[in-house]
Design a protein around this nucleic acid. Structure first.
Lengths: 337, 337
DNA sequence: CTGAAAGCGCTAACAG
DNA sequence: CTGTTAGCGCTTTCAG
């Protein structure tokens, strides 16, 4: 493990001052071509690369942004993260990422650590039990944009999907197929997404005069879907169709239904939310409400970059539009066939 | 956006010297309880948090590790990353991550950026077109462990799966079901994993006296699986079973077969590799060779941490053992039923 | 046990 | 246009 050359080494071998080296590096001043040539040659010769840590300390900016997610193994967030990172990479920002695993404690740790590292900006999809105050406090120091999930009274930037509309689309689809009795299987209600989707569900159901046989909630995970499906199917008088809070849950519902010998969509229509990459591969393929998480990631990253560079705009809330994707898990209720 | 208090502020309000503050922070010297109390009170009062950037500069260590992956949206790597990150988090290391998208150019960029940021260590699952020299060069400066995929003549640490054995398991399973004609659909042969799995496949096939009808290769993606399946099924005289280089590919093969009206496993048995979370949800559920990517991530992280802390061990190669998971995509060939 | 002082590697005024 | 000089916020000898 060798030692790296410093700007001082460059100055010495180019026979100029440290300041001059810095000027050619940063372009803060015009440098005579002859001199600049010498410096550049020295840089190449030594294989010099500026130490970003030192630069960060001097400039008080790290060229690093943080992104904290509840669950990187959920393809929705994986794609979101990747898209955001792509944008940051273009602008030469490094991305530090933290995966809270929906654990408020881990999330706090990440936020704190990122804060200490002098991150220039932060994107966060909060965990279910997130400490909203903590996040607001951090946002006083560091430009922050909330993505997908928001906190009550959030005054800053955010990028979210239109959950009311999305669930409206889902319910209307079921209505048009002829369903009359529907249920909702949801994720954690502490999340704004869950609350908004629930609201979208109930208002749309009311608007179409559909009977809501049950509403249950758990976590936004496959396992929770399995459990909630079990509970649902064990009720007598269960619905002919169910809206599900996200695709991971919906995949669990599919598995649960199959385990109990309930055929989808013949005996039960299932509609998910997100359209993750695997939704189309499940059996039956999942009808769902598509949200382009990569678009959300891109938008959030751009917003943050603007904010960092001080392009002063007022707090900004970007709402992305969902879309209905019809596949094999929904059909007319058997009574109509 | 307010300004954060510094260690100097703490010293001032606690009425001690800067050095003393540092000593209570780092525990480098014993500090009289009374004094230490004053310092701690000041810290709490001001809400002081040490600036990690400054500390990194002074100590020449960033408490940050980098991890670069080819494709975070592949659940195999997402879980690997998460597991590694969990280990690092426990030791108070931050994880900076880069997603090369299998693009050698992006990968180089990440490696360079990470190097400049004075990362303390690096985990990398190289991209297909990776520049092996670049990586070896970096490893001269920064402790590096290769994971999943390795480069020829790699002298450093690595954590890889036993691909020969894995494919051996797959082929034997097919043999035991009674298949006699098999094919291989593979990912990018520039990757050690692809090469080793291919070798495992051919040697095992030979050992069991199976006829190999074809071997094809593309990328380790769903789309490539679709294409290669199309090509395979269009050959006259196609095999009764196919081994596939990873699960993403295999999911594509399933989709391709289904599109061409080829029933799996009745007309074609398919066996994947990795056992990603969605393998069991596909239709039919995928028989596959399980590799615990989270174990690989954990092992790689531990190895790196040891290396960073200078626990001198010789270059170390950890090989994890794969396991056959039988599900619904393999069965005896129809001729035997 | 505590304080003073010299850096870590780089940037950013400010002179010359 | 180039060099000098202070820092950035913290650690770490080394005296006292």
């Amino acid at each position: 493990l060798r030692k790296k050359p410093t700007a001082n080494d460059v100055a010495l071998t180019a026979d100029v001052s440290l300041g001059t080296v810095s000027h050619v590096l940063t372009g803060t001043h015009y440098v005579r071509p002859e001199t600049r040539g010498r410096v550049e040659r020295a840089i190449a010769e030594l294989g010099y690369r500026p130490n970003r840590v030192a630069r960060a300390l001097a400039q008080r900016q790290t060229m690093t942004v943080g992104i904290v997610l509840p669950h990187i193994a959920n393809p929705f967030f994986a794609h979101l993260a990747q898209a955001a990172e792509d944008v940051f990479g273009l602008e030469d920002y490094a991305t530090v990422f933290g995966n809270s695993n929906n654990d408020a404690h881990k999330e706090r740790r990440y936020l704190a650590t990122f804060g200490d590292r002098g991150i220039d900006g932060l994107i966060v999809a909060i965990a279910a039990a997130a400490d909203a105050d903590e996040i607001r406090r951090l946002a006083d120091y560091i430009p922050t944009v909330l993505v997908d999930r928001t906190v009550p009274d959030w005054q800053g930037d955010s990028v979210v999907g239109d959950n009311l509309m999305g669930m409206g689309l889902a319910v209307r689809h079921l209505f048009e197929l002829g369903h009359e009795r529907v249920a909702l299987i949801n994720g954690d209600r502490r999340l704004s997404t869950a609350r908004e989707r629930e609201e979208g569900f109930t208002t749309a159901a009311a608007a179409h005069n559909l009977a809501v046989t049950s509403i249950s909630a758990g976590a936004f995970t496959f396992e929770s879907g399995l459990e909630q499906a079990n509970a649902l199917l064990r009720m007598r008088d269960h619905p002919t169709a169910v809206c599900v809070g996200n695709d991971l849950l919906a995949l669990g519902v599919l598995a649960g239904a199959s385990a109990l010998g309930c055929r989808v969509p013949d005996q039960l229509s299932v509609i998910g939310y997100d359209d993750i990459a695997y939704a189309g591969l499940a059996w039956p393929s999942l009808t769902t409400i598509r949200q382009l998480s990569s678009e959300m990631g891109t938008a959030a990253a751009r917003l943050l970059l603007d904010r960092i560079s001080g392009k002063s705009h007022d707090p900004c809330r970007i709402v992305t539009q969902p879309e209905l994707i019809v596949r094999g898990s929904t059909a007319a209720p058997s009574s109509l066939r």
